[in-house]
Every structure is written in C-alpha cells, then in structure tokens.
C-alpha cells in the first residue's frame, strides 16, 4: 500500500506541481516551437513520453550497475547524452523499418528530442533524487505526461492567441512568452497540494 502511495505521489508531483516545462523550465524549445496546433502538440508530447521512458530504462541501469560500482559517476553527463542520442536514432531506424505507421505519427518528432533538455534532465534528476528503477520509470512517465499536458493546454491557448492583435513589439515570441506566463501561473496554483494530500 505504502509503495503505491509513494508512486502516486511521485506521479502527481511531476505532472502538476513540478511540471517540467512550466515550473522547472526544461524543454522550453519544443514547448514554444511545436505548440501551434493541438494535434502537433499532442504528437510531440507522446514522442517525449516514449523517449523519456526509454531513456530512463537505459540510463538508470547504466548508472547503477556500470558507472557507480566502478567509480565513474563523473562520466554521467557524457554517457547519458550519448546513450540518449544513440537510442533515439536507433529507435527511429527500427520504427521506420518495422512500424511505418507509428513512425509516421511519432517518428518525425524523434530527431527533435535527441538533444532536448527535458529528457536529459529527467534521467539525471532520477539519479539525484535516489529513486529505484520502478520509481524512476514512474517519475519519467509523470514528467512526460506533465509535458504533454502543458503542451496541449498551451496549444489551445495559442490557437486563440493567433486572433489577437498585440502591440507591434510584442508580436511573435514576446506575446507567446507572456501567454506561457499565464498558463504557468495556473500551474503555480498546484504548489503544496501534493504535500497536503500525502504528507511530507
């Protein structure tokens, strides 16, 4: 029971309270770049969840069973980024060959994610937070879901924003960032609610 409670807490925290995009500012580039349409945003979000889970499944064992026992923890950054980059390329090739329909909907976003800071961030955070394998996977799922949620909500806001007429200097990126600020404010309201639900 206690385990499930902890897992639920991890997932709620990473989706709502510590939302990677809106609270920790990781993965801002795809958040602002690929959020013009809702279908695009959800495709990107799904691809991010997929890659985050895969990256965690690969990097957590590497760190725990390969790097740490051999005193090579300092190689974390180099190893993780290379593993993620290689993994994404590999998955793209496999998808293209064996599941072309899935490649059609997810594959196009995969190259964009290789050097995404949210993916590297989640793998490093899982290690720093001292999660075990299951907790790491759940936390990655939560972060991915949080990313998807933020993307879809923001895409909705942006579709409306297209019709607005801001002052000339604010056109383009500035007004998008101001809108992101308001969406982020909504998520800011979740602060503290996980601790009140589950205790410290």
């Amino acid at each position: 029971m206690e385990t499930y409670k902890l897992l639920l807490k991890i997932i709620m925290t990473s989706v709502l309270v510590n939302n990677y995009v809106l609270n920790k500012f990781l993965g801002i580039c795809p958040f602002l770049g690929v959020s013009k349409k809702i279908d695009q945003a959800s495709g990107m979000g799904a691809a991010v969840i997929f890659v985050m889970l895969l990256a965690t499944a690969a990097t957590w064992p590497i760190q725990t069973y390969l790097l740490e026992p051999n005193g090579m923890g300092y190689l974390q950054t180099i190893v993780f980024i290379l593993v993620i980059a290689a993994l994404v390329q590999f998955v793209e090739i496999v998808l293209k060959k064996f599941l072309p329909s899935l490649h059609g909907s997810l594959g196009v976003y995969l190259p964009l994610i290789t050097t995404n800071c949210a993916v590297l961030g989640v793998t490093i955070n899982n290690i720093t937070d001292g999660y075990n394998f299951l907790q790491s996977m759940v936390s990655s799922l939560g972060c991915g879901l949080g990313f998807l949620l933020a993307m879809v909500i923001f895409a909705g806001v942006r579709e409306r924003m297209e019709e607005a007429d801001p002052p000339k200097a604010f056109k383009g990126i500035p007004i998008t960032l101001v809108a992101a600020s308001i969406v982020s404010m909504a998520f800011y309201g979740f602060g503290g609610f996980v601790t009140s639900l589950f205790g410290e």
Binding site: F25, P174, I175, A180, S181
Partner: peptide, 15 residues
C-alpha cells in the same frame, strides 16, 4: 516564481 520568468523574458524581448 516561474510565471515571472516567462513574463520578464517576454517583456525584455519586446523591449
């Protein structure tokens, strides 16, 4: 807080 980051950044680029 995080929302302020987005807001200030947006205003700076606009400026």
């Amino acid at each position: 807080a995080p929302p302020g980051g987005f807001l200030v950044f947006g205003c700076m680029i606009a400026l």
